[in-house]
Each structure stands twice: as C-alpha cells, then as structure tokens.
Amino acid sequence: MTAALALGDDALVLSHRLGEWAGHAPVLEEEVALANIALDLLGQARMLLSFVGDEDQLAYLREERAFRNVQLVEQPNGDFAHTMARQLYFSVYQHLLYEELATGEGEFADLAAKAVKEVAYHRDHAEQWVLRLGDGTTESHERMQLALDALWRYTGELFEPVEGVDVDAHALRDGWLAAVTSVVDRATLALPSGPQAGAWAAGAGRQGLHTEPFGRMLAEMQHLHRSHPGASW
C-alpha cells in the first residue's frame, strides 16, 4: 500500500506537471509528445492508485501531506531545459525501477512489465533532448547545465528504500548514475557536483513533506473536483 501510493503519486504528479505544457510547448511536436508522456503516466497512476483505493478520491481529495511522491516530480516546469532535466532524472530512474520490478513476483510485476516499454520511449525522448540542448548553442548549453544543476539535489530521494518496493536501492542508484553520467558526458555537459543526499539536499516527499510549489499545483489539479463533486464530461 505504501509502495503503490509512492509509485502512483510519482506518476500522477509528473503527469499533471507535463500536462501543464499543453498550449505552451515550444513546437507542436513537443506539445504532442509531452501530452502523450503525461497520458502514459496517468494510466500508470490510475492502476497503481487503484491498488490502494478509489482513484478519484485519492487524486482529488487528499491533502498535500498525504501525497507520497518524490519532490523531484512536483518541481515546476521552468524552461524547457528544466522539464527535460526532470524527465531525464526521473525516466531513467523509472525505467530501471520498472525493469527490476518486472522480473520479480511482486504485485507490481505485470504493470511494470507493461509500463517499462512505455517508459523506454520517455527515457529516449529525454536523452535526445538533453543531448541536443547540451551539445547545441552556447545559450542552450548554459540553460541545460543550469537545469541539471538546479534539480540535482532532488535526485537523492529516488534511491531511498520504499517499503514494499522490492529492489536493491544501491544497485538502482549505481545504474542510474552510470546512465545519467553517460548522457551528460555525451551532451558535453558536466555532472552536477552538489550533494544528492544529506542535510544540504532536498527530499522528504515520501514522508509527505513537499516543496512550496506543490500546494499550488494541487490547488489547480483538485479545484474542479472539489468545487463540483462528481462532475463528469
């Protein structure tokens, strides 16, 4: 239950953040791509939250402190580079995590086996953009680097063990670091040097402590349902 909530909230919150790009993406193809990735994540969130209870109740009627997503996924979109940095950090993590869960016998194995194929495309999308922006113009290089640096301190939380998620957190972190380092190197960028964990890093989302922008995001995500309970299209 803790596990389904954690993984489900990650997917739900990131889905909502990506959905915020609708109408604002730099080009039409990206508008469509980000909405598609958001839709995949929403599908995963629905299944994961359904392990816990009523999906609508959980998505729309919980208070901020009851959400168990990592703080990384709730960070605002920022510029396109920030969104891609968040996508790179998260999709590499989610891809490795689902790969691992898919081989196990746990309750998430079927879902992970299905979702891992979708997430492979999310990961590829993020990697291609980080390469393109990092190894692009001076301006795009600088902004991609700023984005990687800004979100780095939220990445340590990805590797804190979650009760009921049967993976080796150390191995997951090693795999993640190797994959991210490889992309960052090829993109001619520098791997951020700040702390990933510890007193100077962020991350207590799994315990229900969230960053300031999350409250405003929830207000927008939940207000329709709260104002008009049971509304449907």
Binding site: E29, E30, V32, A33, A35, N36, I37, L39, D40, E118, Y121, D124, H125
Partner: peptide, 13 residues
C-alpha cells in the same frame, strides 16, 4: 522521424 510521439501514444510522426 519527426517526433517519437504523434496523434496517439501508440504512434510516431
């Protein structure tokens, strides 16, 4: 390839 994602999740453009 123009985009890995198209009019629906299952298609590329």
């Amino acid at each position: 390839l123009l985009s890995r994602f198209s009019s629906t999740a299952c298609k590329a453009l």
